[in-house]
């Protein structure tokens, strides 16, 4: 299998996630962008497992297992993140991240 395709795809996906995290002001959209980045990492893990680990012999299937881990953590992270966003909305009546700048000097 060619490595170019999955890696390029993952890089594009990651870049889209970074762009979203940095540019979106809506907290929900920022969270979704974070999910995109996680998805890019998952793609990389699976792809490298197919490319490297299968040939070297990897009885633990660590690449695949990590992909499942990332999904689990991603779900937990979205849960916590949405909870924070929800609290933010209740207290501030907004989900704009620019308004949430309490942790400054």
């Amino acid at each position: 299998m060619q490595a170019v395709f999955p890696l390029t795809f993952a890089a594009l996906l990651f870049s889209a996630g970074v762009y979203g995290v940095l540019s979106r002001r809506n907290a929900v959209l920022v969270l979704m962008s974070v999910e995109l980045m996680l998805a890019a990492v998952t793609v990389n893990l699976v792809a490298f497992h197919g490319l490297v680990a299968s040939e070297a012999g990897d009885p633990l299937l660590s690449g695949q297992v990590f992909a499942l881990f990332v999904m689990g953590i991603g779900a937990a992270e979205v849960g916590v993140g949405l909870a924070i966003v929800l609290l933010l909305y209740r207290n501030r009546a907004t989900v704009n991240v620019d308004d949430a700048d309490l942790m400054k000097y």
Partner: peptide, 13 residues
Amino acid sequence: RLAQSGNVQLYAG
């Protein structure tokens, strides 16, 4: 300390 703006996106950037 002005760099410590509290804007998470700046930090992430």
